[in-house]
Design a protein around this nucleic acid. Sequence first.
DNA 1: CTGTTAGCGCGTTCAT
DNA 2: ATGAACGCGCTAACAG
Lengths: 370, 370
Amino acid sequence: MPKKLTIRDIAQLAGVSKSTVSRVLNTKQDVDPVTRERILQIIEEQTFVLDMSASKLAGGRSRLIGSLVPPLAWPLMPEIMRGISDVVAQSPYELILYSITKEQVHHDKEQHDVISRILHSNLASGLLAVFPGPSTPYLTELYEKGFPVVIIDDRGEPTSVPWVSADNRVGAHAATRYLLQMGHHRIAYIQGSPEYRVSQERYLGYCDALHEAGLAPDPALVQQGDFTPMSGRAIADYFCTMVDRPTAIFASNDQVAYDVLTTADKHGLRVPEDLSVVGFDDIPPSAYLRPPLTTVRQPFYEMGKQAAELLLSLLEVSSSGAHALNKLSKSLSVRLVTDLVVRDSCSPPHDNKLQRKSSGLLDSVAKAQQ
Amino acid sequence: MPKKLTIRDIAQLAGVSKSTVSRVLNTKQDVDPVTRERILQIIEEQTFVLDMSASKLAGGRSRLIGSLVPPLAWPLMPEIMRGISDVVAQSPYELILYSITKEQVHHDKEQHDVISRILHSNLASGLLAVFPGPSTPYLTELYEKGFPVVIIDDRGEPTSVPWVSADNRVGAHAATRYLLQMGHHRIAYIQGSPEYRVSQERYLGYCDALHEAGLAPDPALVQQGDFTPMSGRAIADYFCTMVDRPTAIFASNDQVAYDVLTTADKHGLRVPEDLSVVGFDDIPPSAYLRPPLTTVRQPFYEMGKQAAELLLSLLEVSSSGAHALNKLSKSLSVRLVTDLVVRDSCSPPHDNKLQRKSSGLLDSVAKAQQ
DNA sequence: CTGTTAGCGCGTTCAT
DNA sequence: ATGAACGCGCTAACAG
């Protein structure tokens, strides 16, 4: 175990002062390209790495990013984390995981506590918040005080905090339009939790498509769900046993769509022959169900990736420059497009079955937009 | 934004010196209970938190745990992480996530790099490694040099490093015995990747049960797979088209069992009527398949939890005491029991169908042991 | 362009 | 039982 080298050691090896080494390590200007090269060489040979604690203490920056995330068991989380990790791994930063438990997800006091912990421990120099939910206001405050924050998908009101999200409205529009074009008229909709902004957006997209087709949303066909597994069963029961049963159900996320599939089966309804089903998210199991689920894919990996890149660039600015940061805030939102993934859970309704048939290929993907 | 308080500030408020505050913060002896209480009081009021960087630099511990994990998209990871997070969140420690990409998983050089990065950055004071695979030797070296390490499930040879794992052999035994008791004689087995120790263990469990029933493993019924989705299809094809087709297939993980289900369907074989299928892991989708999959549940949450607790206790020891650590190493392995989760993917074979029928309840769980 | 000087906030001797 | 002084490894002025 070669004793841990310090910046001084490599300064000696290079015949310069610690400051110079520090300069090259922090890619400052004003260093002779030759000595810089030599120093880098030595650093490489010795596999020297800056002591982050010392660096943080002396300078203030920490090369540590905090990530405030909902339970990783949420099926969309792994891909988001992969996007984040991939970016962070390529950077000089490391990622601290502050994981919100199922129980804390809806309690803003507890989330506030977690955030305080993040701030007080004074480790992270930036924060990536995934579905921060009730704590969005705190995060906003934080951000406006100059602490770099990026939100992935939000809840509640818009905020000045940079954020990235998929275009839920357009996605829901595409899914609904797909059903309409297939000949469906009675398309039921299962709402997501009302606290989430994405729920409203998806609902609006559903309405958009209906209006476009000259239809008005039928209140009887719109029921309030809450995104969680099992929660859709009662609603699906209701739809399956209606006198004038809908010919298609658009569930506002895949997990609820699974409930629809299960429930339809229970009632002896075949999907897609008797009932078409569309989900939202395209989480991994959706491709493996029977029938494979037609759904709107959210680019989770990309969302994580872009959020991390955004945060990294904020960090860049706040370290080098000054408050030029605030000037950018207008353009600091990213909306990613969704894709309609056509699988086998939809077909034209019985009374109107001359339209196109959905592809039977598991993996066929159709772009939702143009 | 109240300016960050330092240990000195609260020393002043308490009318004592920084040293004393430091002592109570680190729960040292030799502090007057009264002043200790007063200081704690003030710390509480001010919601003061130690600056971890400074603390680490000055020679203290870092309250940071590194976690070296495979891609979170591995279906068993979220639960493991939940176990880890729950424990860490209750402790004064934070978790740094070092995520291995799909590509790095089998390249020990890259993993070595990641580990070096962990060590050199000098942040983490302990390491939790999940399925470290090829880097087990490095971790062993590390551990033997006194750096706290805990491994969750290993690969390759046994090591002195503390580790936790499920009892794969007993689990596989239970699954196979279940099939045997149901009347199956020709039970095929799809192996996992040979590099993983768990693959061998499960295979041994399979053999144990066979021997117990007076049968010998039939080489034609044991095929080498590799745990990944899709990888089982060719093997399942092979089994489904054999002249003397097996009446049951035991897949060494759930993902491969899904392939068996898909393939059986392709060949027009009904599960469980024509073919019984058992998996291993009990990852979330398994309960929602049609038919719901009978499988051996690994206690992933518990594995993460116990590993984190183990590491925390190592950290405790290495901070307070000395090398009493090594004396414990004998008992520092944890083997958790697995459960056979009986769902609907198994039934007695055609030619022998008088035995018990598997439960139809989705969630019915039977203890594998006693 | 580069070296020198001061701390950053805390743990740890060593006194007292 | 408690305080004073020193230094952890590094960055940030300030000189040159």
